[in-house]
Simulated scan of single mutants.
Amino acid sequence: MTQKKDKNGLTEKEFLKDYKAGDYERPSVTADILVLGTSADLRTLKILLVKRDEHPYLEQWALPGGFVRKDETAYQAAERKLSQETGLEGVYLDQIYTFTNPARDPRTWVMTIAYLALVSDTSDDVLHGVTCAGDYDSDGGVQDAAWFDLVIDAESISFINAERNVEIRYSIENKRFKNGRIYYENWVSKPASKEELAFDHIEIIIESILKLKAEFEHTDLSFNMIGEKFTLPDLQALYELVLGKKLYKTNFRAMIAPKVEATGAKMKSVCSNKMSAEYRYIG
């Protein structure tokens, strides 16, 4: 087979042999993960934050994450850092967006690939190994990992952990942006408390929440945020919590009917505290 040559008369093998990667500036790449669940009573969204144990942003709360190694994909890096920093494994992970602002990290040019992780258990029991997380690799560990209440209203987004006496708050404004011929809406945030999240993690959280809201009603994502067995009132409460709106019972049940089946048993609804038919996800 004849090998193709470029304008300099080089085959691909010859070209690669002389290629100098150092001739081009290259960013470092990280993977950051927003872990989202709900309170046990399905009344509050919960987000997992870690407290950094090194510069930059020493002792500030941040999303779990770290640098992508040269022998792994960004997805694998997200799985690894999530396990190391929080103890969470085998959870749903979905790539959200790539953040490329050259000034987003004070150390050097660092791009991050953001992931959304959805979980059904936000108890402290699912977190383990946090204090020794820094022993795993040179990427550092964390001082602490904790679930925060994620409270969103028309004007603000807050992260609250009463046990640690921490409340991080941002004001948000809904703005319109043009892309080609169309306009789209997005939230623009400003710090509204003394304490802030590290890096540009508030932007990662905003993009993740908006994408989740846009997709939640038309996908099966909800079943990653509820137990293997559930009641329909509780499932509807989860949808309403994420979407931020009330749903008509009849329409909701028609929508999810093809995705679930009754087990024949009953269980107590966490919303109503009454016994109700038990269901499971069938896909």
Rank of each mutant, 00 (worst) to 15 (best):
G90E: 09
F15M: 15
A198R: 06
Y57V: 05
G134I: 08
E79F: 11
Y248A: 13
L116V: 04
P27L: 02
E278Y: 07
T2A: 12
D144C: 11
A77D: 08
V188Y: 09
T30L: 01
A262V: 12
F223G: 04
A117Y: 05
Y279N: 10
C271G: 08
L232V: 14
A254F: 08
A114S: 15
L93Q: 02
Y281A: 11
E278L: 03
Q236T: 06
L34S: 01
Y248K: 14
S171E: 15
I226T: 01
S189Q: 08
L247E: 15
K268L: 13
T231I: 11
A146W: 09
T122C: 13
R107A: 11
I172E: 06
T108R: 11
T108A: 11
Y115E: 04
G140K: 00
W61I: 00
F99L: 07
D105S: 00
I172F: 07
I47D: 11
G37S: 09
L232A: 10
I205E: 05
S156D: 13
E155H: 06
I209D: 08
E207M: 07
S189I: 06
A21G: 12
E85C: 01
K7D: 04
K274C: 07
E203Y: 00
K5R: 15
E85Q: 10
E72M: 14
R52L: 14
A62W: 03
T38F: 06
V142R: 10
L221W: 06
P64S: 08
G22F: 00
A277R: 11
K51D: 13
G140V: 00
E217S: 13
Q60A: 09
A257D: 11
F159S: 00
F67K: 14
L34E: 01
S189E: 09
D94M: 02
V142F: 07
A77N: 03
D41G: 03
G244D: 13
Y248Q: 15
E79Y: 12
E12D: 10
Y97F: 05
Q76W: 03
L127P: 00
E59V: 02
K259E: 12
V260Y: 10
S189T: 12
E196N: 13
L10K: 13
L243K: 10
S189F: 02
K46N: 01
L127R: 01
L82Y: 11
S171I: 11
R164W: 05
G141T: 04
D23T: 12
N179Q: 09
L247Q: 15
G37C: 09
R52C: 05
P102G: 02
Y248F: 12
N224V: 06
K178I: 14
I47A: 15
I96F: 00
S269M: 13
G141D: 05
E195D: 02
L88S: 02
T250W: 10
K81V: 04
E12K: 10
N224Y: 12
Y92L: 02
G134F: 09
A254S: 14
V142N: 09
K178W: 13
N101A: 01
G87C: 03
I209T: 05
F148C: 00
L238H: 08
A114G: 13
Y97M: 02
K46Y: 01
P102I: 05
A257W: 08
Q143K: 14
K17V: 09
E217A: 12
L241H: 15
T122G: 07
I209N: 06
V110K: 02
D234S: 15
